[in-house]
Write a protein that binds this DNA or RNA. Structure first.
Lengths: 341, 341
DNA sequence: CTGATCGGTTACAACGTTGTAACGAGCAAG
DNA sequence: CTTGCTCGTTACAACGTTGTAACCGATCAG
């Protein structure tokens, strides 16, 4: 079996507690003794047992990441970034899928699993502002996304309103006047949908354009299939439009597909913009203009915030951080074609 | 803090070891005592400490999953399935990204992290048959993919040759005779690329078609960008072709994009088939015919095999399992259009 | 009525680590 | 020459759990 402190001590000819001192860089260890111990460690390939260390220290060296599902490209790419950043800090990531289900999200907060990590990055979808109380937990927690504001915990999010406004203004700058929105959630004020629609309305208003209900199409989940269905619904309404704002890229790509099936030319007849900048957006036909919400930045900030909480002793005040965004212009709004790395 | 066995014991008025017996359903516990202990457990919301249990039992209750990167849809969807299946078995998943890098893959096998899980699902990309020795590890290991055969460990894989042959035959049945292949790895015999090209050749041969080198395009990584570049390369060669077999969906989608940019009609001028059946394939324009390699099945089998190894004491002989595949026909090879759920 | 047996419970030890206290040796100062 | 201090090392205890052995009272057979 694996070597233990005792084995190392025996080889080095010291007490096994001295070995612990060496590893922990405690003062008061003679250089000669240290060297001997190090040699023994190398020789035996000694590795501290993590369970024992966890038991003693109360730390697991892992963080949890709870997301709706990895099959959604946005979350897969987010998970990729989170794992990469965590890895750089010597921490492993334990992923939990909630399916966006409220019950399972609450479970992620209270379940048995929380013991296996030192803290949680939590991206809720089913929870609402009413559930803010459930966020009052006794372990480090960092919230991602827009479902809950003014919760009791740290929160990392994106500039939803401003970014959506910029996206809409990008379409307006291209001469579009009848801009449809796909993926709205009727009556929602917070949440990505509510905020992005708010940004859309702000842009219209700022440019003296009227808000038209019939240009806004709801879509519950934000998969490609929902975008396709929403676009079919919009076409069925028979209203005129010259641009589409998909509240995420998958919606936009689903909508794009339906438009092309109906022989619309994109961007000549209809311009399209998405949100998220998933990799696929570069390679759709036409490629999709979108908003880069700073996913990389969000992942980095969130992990570092969480690790800070885990490491910190003093209860710091809650923080809310937003990552900067930028518009990535591609063919679907008229940028020149370019394919390749 | 969290309640411990001692707290429960105190409340129930028994020794703290009796509580352990109750939890473990040990015999020789009076029903009345058991009830009292259970009540105390409920009252305190007691949960066994996982670190202590791990230390004592040597089990962590977690499995590792090492894949190249979650940004590749195939691996994201695989991870989704693995997590779902593992969850059903009460096991958490700890994901590690190797980037397909040989050094990091070797590290995943030997690194410190292995202590944090009871076993590993490993999908190598950089390792080769020469590295089979590195797979001789002292923890449960299940191999995924096609990089290494005849290794010393359990292996779950797909019917690469047969599936690729069926894909090619699907194109031939549609009247195609000049079938290009995108994503080959020159000289490779094993690995997904080598095996799928072998299936392609077998199909040609079975139907009396000649193998033509100029129809085969290499592509190192299998991202969309590589598929696009390979297709540009194929077009530059100036050879005639009436179908394209992308060795994975992302390659096929990258190629599709370039074809459409060059005004080829798909499937009328060129039919395309991919491999993997990622979600995006349903929604591309045209939608992509592809091979469903039984990813769900692979995930389920792999997790169960691993858990069996972890649970089992006797060293069972190594097993190699293959999941069944099927062709999913869509527009890119002439199936009728259908969009929606 | 006594000794063996069995059911119910408890005591002890161990998993491997780490923090704190204690210990002995050497050295400087009184 | 002794006292007091520092340095290097060691001993002990604890984290919370679980397996094994031991214990005690009661029941039953002889």
């Amino acid at each position: 079996m694996a070597a233990t402190l005792r084995d190392v001590a025996q080889v080095a000819g010291v007490s096994f507690k001295t070995v612990s001192n060496v590893i922990h860089n405690h003062p008061h260890v003679a250089p000669e003794t240290r060297a001997r111990v190090m040699a023994a460690i190398d020789q035996l390939g000694y590795r501290a047992n993590r369970s024992a260390r966890s038991l003693r220290s109360g730390r697991t060296g892992a963080i949890g990441l709870a997301v709706p599902e990895l099959s959604l490209a946005y979350f897969a790419e987010l998970a990729d970034e989170v794992i990469t950043v965590a890895d750089a800090h010597g921490v492993v990531v334990l992923i939990e899928q909630t399916g966006g289900d409220r019950r399972r999200e609450l479970e992620a907060l209270s379940g048995d699993r929380r013991q296996m990590s030192d803290g949680l990055l939590f991206s809720p979808l089913g929870l609402g502002s009413d559930d803010a109380a459930a966020l009052q937990v006794d372990f480090p927690l960092v919230l991602l996304g827009e479902r809950i504001f003014d919760g009791p915990v740290d929160h990392v999010t994106m500039e939803n309103v401003e970014a959506a406004r910029a996206a809409t203004e990008h379409l307006i700058a291209g001469g579009r006047r009848r801009i449809a929105v796909i993926g709205a959630h009727e009556g929602e004020r917070i949440g990505s949908a509510g905020l992005r629609v708010a940004g859309y309305r702000a842009a219209l208003e700022a440019h003296g354009l009227d808000y038209d209900d019939s240009l806004v199409v709801d879509a519950g989940p934000w998969h490609r299939v929902n975008g396709a269905e929403a676009m079919q619904q919009l076409l069925a309404r028979g209203v005129a439009f010259d641009a589409v704002f998909g509240l995420n890229d998958e919606l936009a790509l689903g909508a794009l597909r339906v438009l092309r099936m109906h022989e619309f030319r994109v961007p000549q007849d209809v311009a399209i913009i998405g949100f998220d900048d998933i990799d696929e957006a570069k390679y759709s036909l036409p490629s999709l203009t979108t908003v880069d919400p700073g996913r990389r930045e969000i992942a980095r900030i969130a992990v570092e915030l969480l690790l800070e909480r885990i490491g910190g002793s003093a209860p710091a005040p809650r923080r809310e951080l937003r990552s900067p965004f930028r518009i990535v212009q591609r063919e679907s709004t008229g940028a020149p074609v370019r394919v390749g790395a």
